[in-house]
Amino acid sequence: MKIKQNNRFKIKNIELIRQLKEGDKLADKYFIFINDAMGGIPCHNRSFGSKADFEYGPNYEVLFQFYADKG
């Protein structure tokens, strides 16, 4: 799959992002983790696919990173 464009979304409540910590939940279902390899940026990821996809490897994952300083 070729990425044609990086998606960026404007964060309306930057203070909410600055207060995120490990284990918090967004929308009552997405767990936050702190990605130390990226400099301590709050992130969450989501996997897609069927049970067979996860077993044999063609599943897909999306990683969301929240940059409060960039808005």
Rank of each mutant, 00 (worst) to 15 (best):
P58G: 07
M38L: 15
D53C: 04
F31A: 03
D36W: 03
M1G: 04
V62R: 09
G40V: 11
D69L: 12
L16G: 06
F64P: 00
E15A: 12
K70V: 04
M1Q: 06
F31M: 07
K12L: 12
L26V: 14
K2V: 15
K4V: 02
E61Y: 11
I14H: 01
G57M: 04
L26T: 10
Q5C: 04
A52F: 00
K70P: 02
K29V: 12
A37S: 11
A52W: 00
V62M: 15
E61N: 06
I11K: 06
H44S: 01
G39N: 09
K12M: 08
D36Y: 09
R18S: 12
L16Y: 08
G39R: 13
F66W: 12
G40P: 07
I41L: 05
M1R: 02
D28L: 11
A68S: 15
F66R: 11
C43Q: 02
N45M: 08
K70W: 10
F33K: 01
G57D: 09
S50M: 09
C43H: 00
Y30N: 03
E15Y: 03
K10F: 13
D69F: 04
K29S: 13
N13L: 09
Q5N: 14
D69Q: 08
E55I: 07
R8H: 06
P58K: 04
K29L: 07
K51P: 00
Y60I: 01
M38V: 11
I41G: 02
K51F: 03
D28T: 10
K10W: 11
I34G: 14
E55F: 09
F48K: 07
P42V: 09
F9K: 12
I41W: 00
F48H: 14
Y60P: 00
R8L: 04
I41C: 05
R8N: 06
N6A: 15
R18Y: 09
G71V: 06
H44N: 14
L16F: 06
G23K: 13
P58F: 08
F66G: 05
F54R: 07
A37Q: 04
Y67I: 04
K4T: 08
F64D: 01
N45K: 06
N45I: 08
A52K: 02
E55T: 08
I17K: 00
H44P: 02
N45D: 02
D36S: 10
V62I: 15
N45E: 09
K70E: 07
K4F: 08
G23V: 13
L26W: 12
R46Y: 02
A27H: 10
C43N: 03
E55P: 03
S47W: 04
G39Y: 07
D53Y: 05
K4P: 05
D36A: 09
Y56I: 04
F66N: 04
K70F: 03
I3N: 14
K29T: 15
E15P: 05
F33Y: 07
L26R: 12
E22I: 10
I32N: 08
K4R: 05
M1T: 09
E61A: 06
I11M: 10
D24S: 08
A27S: 13
M1V: 06
E22Q: 13
Q19W: 02
F33D: 00
R8P: 01
K21W: 10
K10D: 12
I11L: 14
N6F: 12
R18W: 14
I3L: 15
N7I: 14
F9L: 14
N59E: 02
D53H: 10
D69A: 09
L20C: 08
Y67C: 01
Q65V: 10
Y60G: 01
I32G: 11
D69C: 07
F64C: 03
